[in-house]
């Protein structure tokens, strides 16, 4: 019994210490990357290629998910709003949920897998094959070369991808309402405009910026912490997806509390 108790205490203690150490390292990376922003000549040439990789290449998967989300939202709204509630509320529900929640969050969760894991695996491989050390010996600042352009690219591109996803999600919901729910376009648009606030779009943009920073920041952090070869690279990619997804949901709740 005593051994079991000691073991439990040791487990909790070790986890707490390693968690605090991880937070310390993450803070160190944040401060280092912030200081590296001044090395514009190092990161600027890599910004456009990273914007293409992080943003443009993510558009197809984001739009695919948004399309089916819009369809399902429209059908489920129609199913839920039977009876006394006017059918044009389908447009309201599709619009509000796509703009405020599903567009930003589903897109960010998808990109945590596509972009975050990709960055983590790439930087992890560079770390275990000493390419990061090689950058240092060639007088490059690895944070300016590797981290800053990726985070900036995501901060610029995530909102664009999210806005596209919101647009496609609403369009697919609209199309579904016309084809499967016997609604007319004026009815759907009436519902869409009913509770629409321009601030909702800014809310989605602010969330997307923070999600972009988190996904790429977490990917860079776990990538640069990688140890022990291919197994370590795989572990870093997995951790990135798990931690980035958790942080996205925490941030989602935070922004809803602070901004709505």
């Amino acid at each position: 019994m005593t051994n079991w108790l000691l073991g439990a205490f040791a487990f909790v203690g070790n986890r707490t210490v390693s968690g605090l150490q991880g937070m310390g390292r993450a803070w160190g990376l944040f401060l280092g990357a912030t200081a590296s922003i001044r090395n514009v000549d190092v990161w600027l040439p890599h910004l456009l290629p990273q914007m293409a990789r992080v943003g443009v290449a993510s558009v197809p998967i984001a739009l695919f998910i948004a399309t089916f989300t819009g369809i399902v939202m429209s059908l489920q709204a129609s199913y839920t709003l039977t009876g006394a509630i006017p059918v044009y509320f389908v447009g309201t529900l599709v619009g509000k949920t796509m703009i405020l929640e599903l567009g930003p969050v589903l897109t960010a969760l998808t990109l945590a897998g596509r972009v975050g894991a990709n960055i983590s695996a790439e930087l992890g491989t560079m770390r275990v094959t000493e390419q990061v050390d090689a950058l240092e010996t060639l007088a490059y600042d690895p944070l300016a070369y590797l981290v800053v352009p990726r985070v900036f690219a995501a901060v610029f591109m995530f909102p664009i991808v999210v806005l596209l996803a919101i647009g496609i999600g609403i369009a697919s919901g609209w199309f579904t309402a016309l084809q499967l729910l016997d609604m007319s376009s004026p009815e759907f648009v009436k519902g869409l405009r009913l509770f629409f606030e321009p601030w909702d779009v800014w809310f989605a943009v602010i969330k997307s910026v923070s999600f972009g920073a988190v996904v790429t920041g977490v990917g860079c952090y776990f990538g640069l912490q990688t140890e022990r070869g291919a197994e370590g690279v795989g572990r870093s990619a997995t951790r990135t997806v798990v931690v980035a997804s958790m942080l996205i949901l925490c941030l989602d709740a935070f922004w809803a509390t602070v901004l709505l």
């Binding site: 000493e130 390419q131 050390d133």
Partner: peptide, 11 residues
């Protein structure tokens, strides 16, 4: 100049 064990070339 630093010559790495496995070259550490940027792949």
């Amino acid at each position: 100049g630093y010559v790495f064990q496995f070259a550490a070339l940027f792949d």
